[in-house]
Amino acid sequence: MIDRDQVLHVARLARLELTDEELERMASELSVILEHVERIGELDLDGVEPTSHVVDITNVLRADEPRPSWPRERTLAGAPDATEGAYRVPSPQA
């Protein structure tokens, strides 16, 4: 179960601006999904190691050899707001 306030908190963490209607719907939809998901709460998982990844290798490393960086015109070309060779964003504290 997840209530409206929790949904609002999570939306803020995720930088999603939800309308009131979306908030309500999200709360009920997420609750249904979580209810299903919470079935794993009944399993006995004591002493079971978590698996975050299935690939069983280590130390995949890259030699410290420079490769050309990309032309700025190219990387900035798709920027929503490029100014003076930089990416412009609204002030964090305007």
């Binding site: 890259r62 410290d64 050899e65 420079p66 490769r67 050309p68 700025r72 990387t75 003076e84 990416y87």
Partner: peptide
């Protein structure tokens, strides 16, 4: 003091023009 960044082949830079030491990975 490595020659390249932590996860890509760009050279770390100090005092260069902005965004000239970048690539799709570090962007």
């Amino acid at each position: 003091s490595t020659r390249t960044k932590m996860f890509c082949g760009c050279e770390p830079s100090f005092g260069a023009d902005p965004n000239v030491h970048t690539c799709p990975v570090c962007l």
